[in-house]
Design a protein around this nucleic acid. Structure first.
Lengths: 222, 222
DNA sequence: ATCGGTATTATTGTATTAAAAATCAACCCC
DNA sequence: GGGGTTGATTTTTAATACAATAATACCGAT
């Protein structure tokens, strides 16, 4: 008998719409500044305006769209200042993360971290940008998971979303690739030996370099 | 001629509802775990269900309510683990804040900080708990403002909201009042002289004490 | 030709209605 | 009396209808 049936692989429509729109924004399908009109989106997605509106409310609070009263929603255009702000906070949170990870990482997570390190090195060798980004994300996510702090994980993921579109740029700068791999290994070793200060120091350097590149690229995009 | 006229002291109903509900939750008017039913809220506030629904979507993303699909919304009940998580992140962000404030604080903000210090001392003397809380919030807000980092300010305020209900408890413990006042003065002095390390150190101590008290009180509330 | 104003249209904001699902209680059958 | 089933009620979910507002196009006058 397999009639336990589908409770609950059920998702409210608003969440489906929310995820679809978020993905579209993050992936650049919707350009920054582009207007998001309810009827159009509703038709495109085959739903009514109500779930679209609710999804937009959520995106608004996530900072991915901005609302202009009686005008509508548009995709948030991130300014250089916004990006600097986000990166500044992110740096602090990643530092906190490695510190907590040093204290709390489990044996299982240690293994995953080592594997992620290797996977990232291999992704770099392929020079395939999406794979590299993916590998980097996984590596950092394992560290976040190791903190056992749900709030921290949620905030960090939100921050990452905000800058995701621009983050890709730094990966394209191949000259830094070896440095990145090395830093990942150094961070991993520091965490495995639970050396907090070392881990924080390398993480700071690791992210600071990236920030410089991202910000440089943003300036050029203006 | 003052005919620049009133665009825009206009707020969509959803935002009015959002703020009303948020205030009600934070102030404890709605207890944790209490169900929030659309019709009831709509009637109470004199609006239709649509803006209520949109407001609930926003509260959901803020973490003040949790949705149970096809069941409805209820006020988030914060667990001890949630609180610890939030306080942990908050500590890191307040540390970042004093550090940035040391770098960026303006002369005008310096004056406001000094005033807030004095005001807090006077609030303590009154032994009037809401005033003390208010004074403390203002003090920390000035530091956040001085960072010039909008993202940081937004995240910090959200975090504060989450724990606000429980934060009051530590203020009721009168034995710590003198310590609190002193720490505010020390933090202020460190910022005024732009002594980053000192400022961070005191802030860490300042918040760590509070955390212990808050967590202790939470445990008793179970 | 351009400025000003009015009318039209497109789009958001709000309310209402209809449908699906969950809860709860009464009821029947065993 | 107990367990399960059915049915009514409540509540969410989604769609649609209506109202208000802002943008735009058009027209006339100067």
């Amino acid at each position: 008998m397999e009639l336990k049936l589908n409770t609950n692989e059920y998702l409210p429509l608003r969440d489906v719409v929310f995820q679809a729109l978020r993905q579209a924004i993050i992936s650049g399908e919707f350009a920054p500044g582009e207007r998001l009109m309810e009827i159009g989106l509703a038709n495109k997605l085959g739903v009514s305006r109500t779930p679209v509106r609710e999804a937009i409310r959520m995106l608004e609070l996530e900072g991915l769209v901005v609302m202009i009263p009686r005008k509508g929603a548009e995709v948030a255009k991130i300014t250089e200042a916004d990006l600097k702000d986000a990166l500044e906070v992110r740096l602090a949170l990643e530092e906190l993360s490695v510190e907590l990870a040093c204290e709390r990482i489990t044996e299982e997570q240690k293994e995953k971290l080592k594997e992620a390190c290797v996977a990232f090195k291999e992704a770099i060798l392929t020079k395939h940008v999406p794979s590299i980004v993916e590998g980097d994300v996984i590596f950092h996510d394992i560290i976040f998971e190791a903190t056992e702090n749900k709030k921290l994980i949620a905030i960090a993921q939100n921050l990452r979303e905000q800058v995701y579109r621009y983050r890709v740029e730094y990966v394209k700068d191949f000259s830094y690739h070896d440095v990145l791999v090395n830093e990942h290994y150094e961070i991993t070793n520091a965490i495995l030996t639970r050396d907090k200060e070392k881990a924080k120091e390398i993480m700071r350097k690791h992210l600071y370099n990236q920030e410089l590149i991202v910000i440089k690229n943003i300036k050029e995009q203006l």
